[in-house]
Simulated assay, not measured.
Amino acid sequence: MEDTENLTKVCHNCQSEILTSNHYCNYCGQTQNAEEIETAGFKWSNLQQLALFFVVQVLLCITPAIIKENSIFFNLSLDVVMAITTLIFFGYSWAENKYLLKWPAFSLKKLLLFIVIASLASVIVQYLVTHLNLILWNKTQSYYDTFSGHPYGKYLMILSIAIFPALFEELAYRGYLMQKLINIFDEKQAIYISSFIFFIMHFSLISFFWLLPFAITLGFIRIREKTIWYGVIIHFIFNLTACLYELVDYDELQHLLNSLQ
């Protein structure tokens, strides 16, 4: 049997011959676990980028509460700022993120199935959330209240609630964030961590029962399909259905109130 204790290697720094068991060079003192150091440095760099991403997202999410502004202009401006920051982060790591914009093995049947499931799930969630709000706080929350005074309020609501989040939240959380996490953790851990961050960024405890499972499902689909586009479509249909559900209820409520006057 070969005596592994006496095997030698060359120091990657000074090229002196040292034992393979040595972690440091006897001549120059340079550490010999260069690969481990490189890996640790890579992970540390990703952690720093993740920390910056998290701070930026928190600041953007708490801005409405700090400024206490809920106008159409403010909401759309915040949407644009979030979109721009997402594109900056995603573009900064373009080399490792660009494959997510491809759509390998596209399946129309699969897409239609996802659309149907997303629509049905959204209706169920909206119904349950409405009743939970009534039970817990004796009131309902309406996205449309912010946009109702504008002649194109319904379209602006769909833009702000369905289109912008579907595209840019998927780019941010299932795109940039999850990819950075995969560089540090395994895929399942990346899914759960990114999903939890996605949930807490919405600052809505009542949404826990559906928002976290929703994010986890999108995470698994992104990993399995190697693209964010299924997630973008699912997210869009889910939010669009929520908008239409609310608009129908809102119109019916207005009609009822007008009939009582």
Rank of each mutant, 00 (worst) to 15 (best):
Ile66Asn: 00
Phe106Lys: 15
Phe236Ile: 14
Leu177His: 12
Ser119Leu: 15
Gln32Met: 14
Ser259Trp: 07
Asn33Ile: 02
Arg222Tyr: 07
Ala65Tyr: 10
Ile234Asn: 08
Leu111Asn: 05
Ile233Pro: 03
Thr130His: 05
Phe53Val: 05
Leu113Pro: 04
Leu156Trp: 06
Val129His: 03
Ile184Asn: 03
Ile88Trp: 07
Cys243Phe: 00
Leu100Gln: 13
Ser119Asn: 08
Ile184Val: 09
Lys9Phe: 04
Glu252Cys: 04
Phe90Gln: 05
Phe198His: 15
Gln179Thr: 15
Glu187Met: 03
Ile193Val: 15
Thr241Asn: 09
Lys139Ile: 00
Leu247Gly: 01
Leu47Lys: 09
Leu128Tyr: 08
Lys43Gly: 09
Thr31Leu: 10
Leu181His: 12
Ser107Val: 02
Asn239Ile: 06
Phe114Asp: 09
Ala118Arg: 01
Leu211Met: 14
Leu7Arg: 11
Phe53Glu: 05
Leu159Cys: 10
Leu159Phe: 09
Leu244Phe: 04
His150Tyr: 12
Met201Val: 04
Phe208Gln: 00
Met82Asn: 07
Ser45Ala: 13
Asn33Gly: 02
Asn26Thr: 11
Leu212Thr: 01
Val123Ala: 15
Ile18Tyr: 11
Met1Asn: 04
Val129Asp: 05
Ile191Cys: 00
Val125Cys: 14
Glu187Ala: 09
Phe164Met: 12
Asp186Ala: 11
His255Met: 10
Val248Asp: 00
Thr241Asp: 05
Val123Asn: 02
Ile216Met: 14
Leu205Tyr: 12
Thr85Leu: 12
Phe236Ser: 06
Leu257Phe: 02
Cys14Thr: 13
Tyr176Gln: 07
Thr146Pro: 03
Phe74Ser: 08
Ile197Arg: 03
Trp94Ser: 14
Ala105Tyr: 05
Thr241Phe: 02
Thr130Asn: 15
Phe236Asn: 10
Thr217His: 02
Ile223Ser: 07
Ser93Pro: 00
Leu108Asn: 06
Ala51Val: 13
Lys154Ser: 14
Leu19Tyr: 11
Asp251Val: 06
Ala40Ile: 05
Asn33Ser: 13
Ile206Trp: 01
Tyr144Gly: 02
Ile124Tyr: 08
Phe185Leu: 09
Phe164Cys: 03
Ile182Gln: 11
